[in-house]
Design a protein around this nucleic acid. Structure first.
Lengths: 180, 180
DNA sequence: AGCGCCATGTAAGTGGTTACATGATTGT
DNA sequence: ACAATCATGTAACCACTTACATGGCGCT
């Protein structure tokens, strides 16, 4: 699934601009689907070219036109087909884990810093999800509630694992002992 | 961190061919860092060009030369520097979660199929990690044991969450009720 | 007869990131 | 003064994926 398809999905919730969608990518979708303006704007243009969305230009003073996109019937049909994949992937790409694989080559201080940073990241995300939950989750479709809960559960599991197992990494230094 | 750097890291464990490294990418590193031959072979060539690894050509009958790569002192220095990032990222890219966000647009049967598939994927990975644990984990560096445990914990958390919360998605049909 | 394992590589394509370009308004 | 918010876009770049190309050996 690409940025185009996710944008299309977001538009099923109502008309929005690229700028609006970016906020979704930062909040709700942030923990599992990243996208910057450099992907979103071209995606929306392409969707409009293919008739999957319509675009209304709203002029503004001193700013570029606000472009509000709305999904079309063809867009909905396209989305529904895209959602038919019975085995959508769930991929992790972790420089963190790759780094930890080589912890025995690193000084303890560095390992500690990396682990602390990961826990900070967990804290950041769980706070973010709590904020979202507190504000506007009641009127969400059940799928988005499921997904928010999923994120929360995974982050909690990550935090727990790191806290309970960091001793495996940092108890020893990177210099090999001579006791072999 | 790119494929090059991870290959370099793997070579700290001993000399190996591209084919050998691929097996690592499929087993130990599979759940958090994917790479195919199309990335691995060019990565190793590039590392050799830059003097970070040496390459020994071992002729074979009826097969291409087996090329065994070994890390150099410069390679080790390069790796150690790459490992100094105090905030290595941990990214999830999930078509599964993106799909579930739009579950209210899907028929129940489809949702069930997607959830079942995810649980199968969990089963596949946890079995794989168990196999790895059973065979050759004792002599691993602590970092790789930490990472294997991490994968196991995350997959267990995923399985648990999906099993306990799938009812949120599949109890209702995709057709909006007229009770609003 | 066919599949999977061994073993390497290239070339084209894809999909995304990063940096750049513009510029008014509102808050601290 | 400075940063953040609003608001859009392009162009160069990058890393990785996919498909293709080659071919013997051993197992069922």
């Amino acid at each position: 699934m690409d940025v185009k398809t996710v944008c299309l999905g977001m538009l099923t919730d109502g008309a929005a601009s690229g700028y609006d969608l970016k906020k979704n990518f930062e909040s709700t979708f942030g923990h599992f689907f990243a996208a910057g303006f450099g992907s979103i704007y071209p995606a929306l243009s392409s969707l409009a070219d293919n008739g999957l969305v319509t675009c209304e230009h709203i002029p503004q003073d001193g700013k570029p036109d606000r472009k509000v996109y709305e999904i079309t019937a063809e867009g909905t049909a396209f989305l529904l087909e895209a959602l038919q994949d019975p085995a959508p992937c769930h991929k992790v790409r972790s420089d963190f884990l790759a780094t930890m694989c080589f912890a025995h080559l690193m000084p303890s201080k560095q390992i500690e810093a990396v682990l602390d940073n990961r826990l900070e990241d967990c804290a950041y995300y769980s706070e973010m999800i709590s904020d979202i939950e507190a504000n506007r989750m009641d009127d969400w479709p059940p799928g988005q509630q499921f997904v928010a809960g999923f994120g929360k559960a995974m982050i909690a599991a990550m935090k727990k694992y790191v806290e309970e197992n960091r001793h495996l990494l940092s108890e020893q230094t990177h210099i090999k002992s001579a006791t072999g």
